[in-house]
Design a protein around this nucleic acid. Structure first.
Length: 760
RNA sequence: GCCGGCGUAGCUCAACGGUAGAGCACCUGUUUUGUAAACAGGCGGUUGCGGGUUCGAAUCCAGUCGCCGGCUCCA
């Protein structure tokens, strides 16, 4: 006699066990018809789930009462669509495509599959696959769950010889379940229920033969062999019938390693097919249109169109050339943050782009991060010498990685560990010294701190620098401005007493907040990166890690936004607080970061004199509120879609004379504005174009304000204003009033355009 | 780095085994213009690069460099 509590609090009692669908029917025929699945005590389940015990139940329908899209419904449809797509792909490519893993994602779903040698899935197959998906949806076959006891289930899977599914089953078995579940797209046969493998004649699976006719033939074969049914090991849940998937399509192809682990084994390289599904074709179309718009908003597209930056093959991959326009934006941001730094008591330093290898051996960066650094620079004489000695490459590498006995002794003593193992030690005359293009600014800053004595009275020392660093990112990772090989961090290192850490962390977070607020960026996520479980990638004492992690947690709590703690995301020297944002195609990037480091001061033997007149170890906070200027501006371009607020716009105002006759007045307006607003970026378009043409060009360049000036304006000493985004004549305005408004807007770093004649 | 896709004028794209083309940009004129492109003419290419197949290659093949999507990595 299950008592079922509905979302509105009413309790329904049934004499016998009932399915969720039965409950829906008892509430209303409309609800039962709209139902896609259910939630039992918060857990998403099939509509056919038999309810035997008391529970809280809600029926999942495509839309909520307030007409908003129900994410649970999307999940069910997409998870089900993954099955339909997999079936379609097996129809088009061949039954020997082995399925591995096919979950829903935020915007759709994917299915990882092993495509046997000699076959491949390409975008040329998409039309055929989509046609098959649409057909299966139209067939409106039920999704039928059946379960087999674990041993029986394994027997079936062994027969089917799909190691990926066996692996999935193994994982499921490890959770302690007594059964394995399958979902049949259709009604299960006796044989399926008995765990017997079906057979299918499959001579027509060559991709070249896939056309409408062969599709029909395949489809017919499916029906004659075992009816319109297809099955997949799956824990569910699913929508009741394929027809309940509103619209689905295959989106793109990618690759993935099995279990996400790189391997030389070709059976570990899977093809990941992405698809998406929505409740209706209209929603799917809207999604596709939105993707198209996102593409146009991509910083690489806008950056090229507005000439904000340039990447040149001959200069090198991942190396950003800042054009004059992009440089304006970067400069404005740097000026802005510099003002905040002065307010917070930072001092500024400059350090060179390279440093000796010993510096990074001391910090621990070399050879720890060797794979992602530019190779060391060896000066000519040393290079000539080792070459004349007939030194092999392997030996040279060894001699570069090695350290002197002195460095080993010092470091191991300071860290009270075997930070540097004996096999890395080499006599001085064998050591090969080199320089590293700096991958981090902190070692340089540590040396500045160490270059003078410090009293507890003048702590913390806050050393800031827009420091450019270089990292050898894998070529496949490079991406416009967001993933590059040379980038400038708005870096600083705060050398604190242990007591100062909480307050300094707050100051750092304050900077990030000011930036996001000024730019109107609200869509970000905060992540506190902690040590991973039993990993040996971390250096330093456990007690200090615990303290540092707690300090980060406490600081993050003060942010007033939610944050997630992510074990395994700490830096090798300490925990951190990261600010993450998404780009237009949904990829997440780390921008600002604040990191606590107990290790650097030890490694570099840094100290300050305390009130007890004894030396003490400082703690170092690394922080970069923008993160990387390159990445930040890349993300910012997308955030504003290239339409920057006036204070950041490469060109803020353009004066458009109606004809040559008002060129003189235009020049007068120009010089007046320049005289009123220092560093105003303003030009005059005195080309031969008609006013319509000048407006079109300026609009495409996303200039905030256009001042149209003709004889009328000249006579009244006014300007006819056109405001970006309004696409119309905003009306005339006295020149001096416009200047005053504009000045206020720029100096106030307003995020939106405010100089409108209506507002006066 | 790995898997898949793509490289044509400064930009966006066409030609897909048979003489490389358009629009925009740029230059020269004409037009003197009131809110998203006035008109005419001109300049611009060893089709990323170097090989191969072919009577003939932008087009087909293998390589290389670069870009795009994903994986992996990210101090």
């Amino acid at each position: 006699m299950p008592k079922i509590t509905l979302p509105d609090g009413t309790i329904k009692e049934f004499p016998n066990a009932v399915t969720a669908l039965d409950v829906a029917k008892s509430i209303g025929a409309g609800l039962a018809k709209a139902a896609l699945g259910c939630k039992i005590d918060g857990e998403l389940r099939d509509l056919s789930t038999l309810i035997e015990k008391d529970c809280a139940l809600s029926i999942v329908t495509p839309t909520n009462r307030d007409k908003s899209v129900n994410p649970d419904a999307l999940f069910l449809m997409r998870h089900s669509a993954a099955h339909v797509m997999a079936e379609a792909i097996q129809d088009v490519i061949g039954k020997d495509v082995l399925l591995a893993y096919g979950p829903s994602t935020e915007t759709g779903f994917f299915y990882d599959m092993y495509v046997p040698p000699g076959k491949s899935i390409s975008t040329d197959h998409f039309a055929a696959i989509n046609a098959r998906i649409a057909a299966i949806i139209k067939e409106d076959r039920p999704f039928t769950r059946y379960e087999l006891p674990v041993p029986k289930g394994f027997e079936k899977l062994e027969n089917e010889k799909n190691k990926y599914k066996l692996d999935n089953a193994n994982r499921a078995a490890q959770t302690g379940t007594s059964t394995l579940s399958w979902y049949v797209t259709g009604e299960p046969t006796e044989e399926q229920l008995a765990g017997k493998q079906y057979e299918l004649d499959e001579n027509d699976d060559d991709k070249s033969s896939v056309d409408a006719q062969s599709l029909e033939r395949i489809s017919a074969a499916m029906h004659t062999a075992f009816g319109p049914r297809w099955e997949d090991l799956c824990r569910g849940p699913h929508v009741p019938k394929t027809g309940r998937i509103g619209a689905a399509c295959v989106m793109s192809l990618a690759s993935a390693y099995w279990h996400g682990k790189e391997s030389d084994d070709p059976t570990h390289r899977l093809t990941r097919v992405y698809g998406t599904a929505f409740a209706s074709q209209a929603e799917l179309d809207a999604h596709l249109a939105q993707l198209q718009q996102a593409k146009e908003r991509d910083h690489r597209v806008i950056g090229k169109k507005l000439h904000l930056f340039h990447i040149d093959e001959m200069v090198g991959q991942g190396l950003i050339l800042w054009t004059p326009k992009g440089s304006v934006i970067r400069n404005e941001l740097q000026t802005f943050i510099s003002q905040e730094l002065v307010r917070q008591g930072y001092t500024q330093v400059y350090t060179p782009h390279i440093g000796k290898l010993d510096l990074y051996k001391t910090s621990g960066h070399f050879p720890y991060y060797k794979e992602s650094q530019f190779a060391p620079i060896i000066e000519n004489d040393s290079l000539t010498k080792v070459m004349s000695e007939g030194c092999s490459c392997a030996e040279m590498t060894h001699r570069l990685d090695a350290v002197s006995a002195r460095l080993q002794r010092d470091l191991n003593e300071r860290t009270q560990s075997s930070a540097i193992t004996a096999d890395r030690v080499m006599p001085d005359e064998k050591l090969l010294e080199g320089f590293l293009l700096k991958p981090m600014n902190c070692p340089h800053h540590a040396k500045i701190f160490a270059s003078s004595p410090h009293s507890y009275r003048d702590m913390p020392a806050r050393l800031s620098e827009f420091g450019t660093v270089y990292r050898w990112e894998q070529s496949g990772e490079l991406n416009g401005m967001t993933r590059v090989r040379g980038f400038t961090q708005d870096d600083a290192h705060l050398f604190c007493t242990p007591e100062q850490i909480p307050a300094e962390l707050l100051g750092c977070l304050e900077l990030v907040k000011i930036i996001f607020k000024t730019l109107g960026m609200k869509d970000y996520r905060v992540r506190v990166g902690l040590r991973g479980p039993d990993s040996n990638k971390y250096i330093g004492e456990r007690a200090n890690w615990d303290k540092a992690e707690q300090a980060c947690r406490d600081a993050a709590k003060t942010l007033g936004v939610s944050f997630v703690e992510t074990p395994g995301e700490a830096a090798f020297y300490g925990p951190k607080i990261d600010f993450m944002v998404k780009d237009v195609i949904g990829r997440e990037w780390q921008l600002g970061t604040v990191q606590v480091d107990y290790n650097m001061a030890i490694r570099f033997d840094l100290s300050y004199i305390g009130p007890d007149n004894k030396p003490h170890r400082p703690v170092v906070i690394h922080r970069a509120p923008f993160g990387s200027m390159e990445r930040f501006i890349g993300v910012l371009i997308e955030h504003f879609a290239g339409a920057f607020p006036t204070w950041l716009s490469p060109e803020q105002v353009r004066i458009l004379p109606i004809s040559e006759k008002t060129n003189e007045y235009a020049a007068e307006v120009h010089s007046y504005l320049k005289s009123q607003i220092s560093n105003l970026r303003c030009t005059v378009d005195s080309s031969n174009d008609r006013i319509q043409g000048k407006i079109k060009i300026a609009a495409e360049e996303k200039i905030p304000y256009l001042l149209i000036v003709g004889p009328r304006d000249a006579e009244s000493r006014s300007v006819s204003l056109r405001i970006r985004g309004e696409e119309k004549d905003a009306g005339a305005m006295p020149l001096d009033q416009f200047a005053a408004k504009l000045k206020g807007e720029i100096e106030g770093r307003r995020a939106t355009l405010t100089a409108s004649p209506v507002a006066i």
